[in-house]
Design a protein around this nucleic acid. Structure first.
Length: 390
DNA sequence: GCAGAAGCTACGAGGGATCA
DNA sequence: TGATCCCTCGTAGCTTCTGC
């Protein structure tokens, strides 16, 4: 193995944004215009085909173009998102640097994995007080250790491709399971928006107990309140959950608990500020602030059923929320929501299907984590020269 | 081409109005 | 008078713009 600078492995180009004044640049969907959002962050180098922005051919001379097999690397903001260009050409913005590999020296897939492996080092050199930045010169002079012969590089890239494709498949399966829950709901209860199966309807407040989270003390983030043994969830924890909330980032002390309220495991949490009508079910006893409402189902319904019901209405509720600096809904709006109430046996049957799917998802998520760990271990071996020693 | 400024978004906290 | 509600504000982190 030998050390090499990136500029020795290919041409480095920085990105730009063609001026918006020339609106015609953006009117035709000729060339994908890639932004950092379009690049994957986890253990993947797969370029997302569906970038949301395009420019027309007439902007080509004003844009920076990376041809097929180029490697894109984010160099401002989130550093080290990496992807291989899988189209004939793409344009990319100034937060991204591209390297067009010299295929006589380096295999493009090998280079992409090598940069992924060196993500931590890239982040280290992007040390800046406000926004992390790697400029063109630092990027070009980034030193990496590479295998000398292309054959070894290709063998390593093949092995990592295989491991990476398994990870991608697992992610697709996880996404499919989320869709499956909605499909089962449709199958069993019809379209909840139009209620095409004519189920009896109730206001949400008639289907259980609704109550707002409590955070009486001011300031709310007083250090005395935090750091104890009582879980405290915020709207972000709920927005990031799907059916169940398994995690929390903050805790209340005894003093914190005294000025709040501990909600029981199984409570459905509904966000009412900033994130609107995002839901999740507590898997532990927890406190939450007054930007969250708790719902405890009565004998007419089931929390899991209500949780999935909200997934169909979240966007509708959010769009109807009065907006000032921040969107808000209140208890009254939630209480008056009209909810279908099929027979409880049917709802319970649905809930057990969802629980089964969730259990499978949990197993799959653990296996995904294990796959990612194995992938990292494989990269370590590969780029230390232990996988295919020369 | 670079890097600082400005803008945007997500999230949480502050605090006045209202209610019981 | 304390609790609750909800509108407004502040902050962090990131993205986009723009002037040099």
């Amino acid at each position: 193995m030998r050390k090499a600078y990136l500029y020795e492995l290919g041409s480095v180009i920085t990105g730009n944004t063609p001026p918006k004044k020339k609106k015609e640049y953006y009117m035709n969907s000729d060339i994908s215009f890639v932004k950092p959002d379009d690049l994957p962050y986890r253990q993947s180098i797969n370029f997302l085909n569906n970038s949301k922005c395009y420019i027309s051919f007439c902007a080509k001379d004003k844009a920076r173009i990376a041809p097929k097999k180029s490697i894109l690397v984010t160099c401002i903001g989130i550093i080290g998102k990496i992807a291989i260009v899988n189209k004939n050409e793409v344009a990319f913005n100034q937060q991204i640097n591209a390297i067009i590999p010299n295929e006589k020296v380096i295999d493009h897939r090998y280079l992409a994995y090598l940069l992924l492996f060196n993500r931590k080092k890239l982040n280290f050199i992007a040390n800046a007080p406000i926004v992390p930045i790697i400029n063109k010169s630092d990027f070009s002079n980034f030193k990496v250790k590479i295998h000398d012969d292309i054959m070894s590089q290709q063998k390593i890239a093949d092995s990592l491709d295989l491991a990476s494709s398994l990870i991608e498949k697992r992610k697709e399966q996880l996404e499919a399971m989320d869709q499956l829950i909605q499909s089962v709901f449709y199958e069993m209860f019809g379209d909840p928006v139009v209620n095409d199966k004519n189920w009896e309807m109730f206001n949400l407040s008639n289907l259980g107990e609704l109550g707002r989270g409590v955070s009486k003390h001011r300031p709310r983030n007083d250090e005395k309140l935090l750091g104890g043994e009582y879980p405290l969830i915020q709207t972000g924890d709920i927005a990031n959950s799907y059916i169940y909330i398994y995690d929390y980032k903050s805790t209340y002390s005894k003093l914190g608990l005294e000025q709040s309220k501990l909600w029981r495991k199984g409570t459905l949490c509904i966000t009412i500020a900033a994130n609107i009508a995002k839901t999740g079910i507590l898997t532990f006893n927890s406190c939450f602030p007054d930007s969250v409402v708790g719902f405890i189902a009565n004998e007419k319904t089931n929390s899991i059923f209500i949780n999935v019901w909200f997934s169909f209405f979240q966007e509708i509720i959010e769009n109807s929320a009065p907006e000032s600096a921040q969107k808000n809904i209140n208890l009254k709006i939630l209480s008056n929501l009209s909810v279908i109430a099929p027979p409880i046996d049917l709802q319970n049957k649905f809930a057990s299907i969802v629980e089964e799917i969730e259990a499978q998802k949990k197993v799959m998520e653990e296996s995904l984590q294990e796959m990612e760990n194995n992938f990292n271990a494989l990269m370590q071996k590969a780029f230390k020269g232990e996988l295919f020693p020369e």
